[in-house]
Simulated scan of single mutants.
Amino acid sequence: MKQEVKIPQATTKRLPLYYRFLKNFATEGKKRISSQELSDAMKIDSATIRRDFSYFGALGKKGYGYDVQYLLEFFRQTLDQDEVMNVALIGVGNLGNGLLKYNFQKNHNTRIVVAFDSKAPMEGTTISDIPVFHPDRLEEMYKEFGAELAILTVSSRSAQMMTDRLVKINAKGILNFTPVRLSVPDTIKVMNIDLSVELQALTYLVRNSGK
């Protein structure tokens, strides 16, 4: 992503959503949309959308709204949708298995190309057409398959140890599904997804709605 202004992480996380909904609008034949139309579709406050867009300059015109094709092309380039990035999955338990079956290549600019699991044989096996190796071969196979990002779905006790190994082989980013807050240098980007926290937050919202 090329910009001088530092984009907040909350905004960064919404960029793929904007791209997805803009593709829907384009498929429906929409030529232009307002921030309110996008707000109604995405259930995001229109002021938030306008603020997010403002980080990237003048993407629309007052009284006209936004040109759908222009925005679609802008976000496609911003998200590097034409360049696929290879991903390594570390930990093939229930969650890891689900990620392998889904994989991201069909709908996104990322794809899982290799996985690692402590139950896998040293010579490797295949799950959902993805080669899976024992973690002892992480450094070797991570580089051989050209992985740049890692998805971490291991146990909490193994999370930092595996992260330290990823740091040494210059992983660019980690999508962390463990509850551990990883210690990494500034050169590595980490996004944390704690399903238990998200579920607790949802439970709170449900129980307190309408109060």
Rank of each mutant, 00 (worst) to 15 (best):
N107Y: 12
N109S: 15
R111L: 00
I112F: 08
V113M: 10
V113E: 14
V114M: 05
F116A: 12
S118C: 14
S118W: 14
K119I: 08
K119V: 12
A120D: 09
A120N: 05
A120G: 10
M122I: 15
M122H: 12
E123R: 03
T125Q: 02
T125W: 00
T126P: 00
I127E: 02
S128G: 00
S128Q: 04
S128M: 01
I130H: 02
P131S: 00
F133T: 04
P135L: 11
D136G: 02
R137Y: 00
L138Y: 00
L138R: 01
E139Y: 02
M141W: 00
Y142P: 01
K143F: 07
F145A: 06
F145C: 09
F145I: 03
F145M: 09
G146F: 05
G146P: 03
G146A: 03
E148K: 12
E148D: 10
E148I: 01
A150C: 10
A150H: 08
A150R: 05
I151S: 08
I151Y: 07
I151E: 07
L152C: 04
T153P: 04
T153R: 09
V154F: 04
S155V: 10
S156I: 01
S156P: 02
S156W: 02
S158Y: 09
S158M: 14
A159P: 12
A159G: 12
Q160M: 08
M161V: 15
M162N: 11
R165S: 09
R165L: 06
R165N: 06
L166M: 06
L166Y: 03
V167I: 15
V167R: 03
I169E: 06
N170Y: 12
A171K: 07
A171W: 10
K172T: 06
L175A: 14
N176W: 07
N176F: 06
P179L: 14
V180Q: 04
R181E: 15
R181P: 01
L182G: 04
L182T: 02
L182R: 01
V184W: 01
T187H: 08
I188N: 04
I188S: 04
K189H: 10
K189P: 05
V190L: 06
V190A: 10
N192Q: 07
N192S: 08
L195I: 15
S196E: 12
S196D: 12
S196R: 15
V197Y: 08
V197T: 15
V197Q: 15
E198F: 13
E198Y: 14
E198R: 14
E198G: 08
E198I: 15
E198M: 15
E198S: 15
Q200F: 12
A201G: 11
L202T: 14
L202M: 14
T203C: 13
Y204Q: 13
Y204R: 13
L205D: 12
V206S: 09
